[in-house]
Write a protein that binds this DNA or RNA. Structure first.
Lengths: 192, 192
DNA sequence: ATTTGGATCCTAGCACCGCTAGACAAGTGA
DNA sequence: TCACTTGTCTAGCGGTGCTAGGATCCAAAT
């Protein structure tokens, strides 16, 4: 059985290599540059090998997105736990979110702009995605205010952050005043 | 000179036909289905004709985006002018914006998700885009609150609407509670 | 030790994409 | 009527995601 186990290990390692390489290539040159040919060449296998791990390019994007969701959840939790008081936590979460989006634009695209074939807001939503939302909920729910459902509040806050992240990065908003926009958003939405 | 004028008229008409057909096709089957071949076939000309009007597919997307921006600005102004009181106007604007995004998903994509080669937030930004932002500013600026720059407030409000629009349509947010999210957003952000 | 069978991987190719060079026809002015 | 410009089309380039079918290699069975 040892032989089979080794093969499975190697196969899993190659799958991780594919995802990591796709992510790396996307961050370096954008998702348009992530073609199945280039990706195959980088991992030093032929194209069809990709399709023995994933149904297609979409699923590779989805895998990068899941990895990103887990990292973002961790980043949010780490920043939030270092802040004291609900209000400071909210500010910290907002910054952690926007920083992640800015520092990992390709991963952020995989999560929210591209079609990774992932299901959101449903029962069969993959765990990392649910957990990413949970990380926001944990820290934002406490400033939802009386009579406001924490989940709903988190959705609105998240949507606002998402809007800021995407519009800023696409050049729709001047980056200079980013910090003041965050302050305004947190100041108005969060009920201390 | 009359012959030349007629030709110019016909040429302008054909250009409008291209944009209208691209938009129609995108709304019917999504932007992925808008290929230069299919588009050429629908307007009953060959592919190269498209390139005598536009530099490429990107510019066609941009033309649809500009058309959409003008329509959205008109929709926002029309809805806002029918509401009395600053607060009602803000709610009306939010609904007009989200309705437009929901009813014209392909146009909204052309404006904000796809690359139409347009410049935003700069001097050489095309007029319809500036005017679209102006339409928001006119109605949102009055509820920015003391000491808050109306432009900055509008940017934040717009970002929030954009986040709601995109996340909802991409299935990231359950559509059921859309109305309550708008209420929460307007209630918190707008200073009466 | 040899053979066999199955897993693994690659070469080659399909249909499609955005885009363009160059041939061809149609209409204009002399 | 003839030359010429203008407009349009056919054909094709290099690229895309994806897959069929054959070659190879290696573990298990004889």
């Amino acid at each position: 059985m040892s032989v089979q186990e080794r093969k499975e290990r190697e196969r899993a390692a190659r799958e991780r290599l594919i995802v990591a390489t796709a992510r790396e290539l996307a961050e370096q040159q954008g998702w348009d540059a992530v073609t199945t040919r280039r990706l195959a060449e980088r991992i030093e296998y032929s194209q069809p090998v990709l399709y023995s791990h994933f149904r297609g390019k979409r699923e590779i994007i989805g895998a990068v997105a899941l990895q990103g969701a887990a990292e973002m959840a961790a980043a949010v939790r780490a920043t939030a736990s270092a802040a004291d008081g609900p209000r400071n936590r909210v500010t910290a979460v907002a910054h952690a979110y926007l920083d992640f989006a800015e520092r990992n634009p390709a991963v952020y695209d995989a999560m929210f702009q591209l079609d990774g074939g992932l299901t959101f807001a449903a029962e069969d939503t993959p765990e990392p995605l649910k957990d990413g939302f949970a990380a926001l909920l944990e820290n934002l729910g406490e400033v939802a205010g009386d009579g406001v459902h924490p989940g709903l509040f988190t959705e609105v806050f998240w949507a606002a952050l998402h809007g800021l992240a995407t519009l800023t990065r696409a050049g729709r908003l001047p980056p200079a005043e980013a910090e003041r926009r965050v302050e305004l958003l947190v100041g108005r939405l969060a009920v201390a």
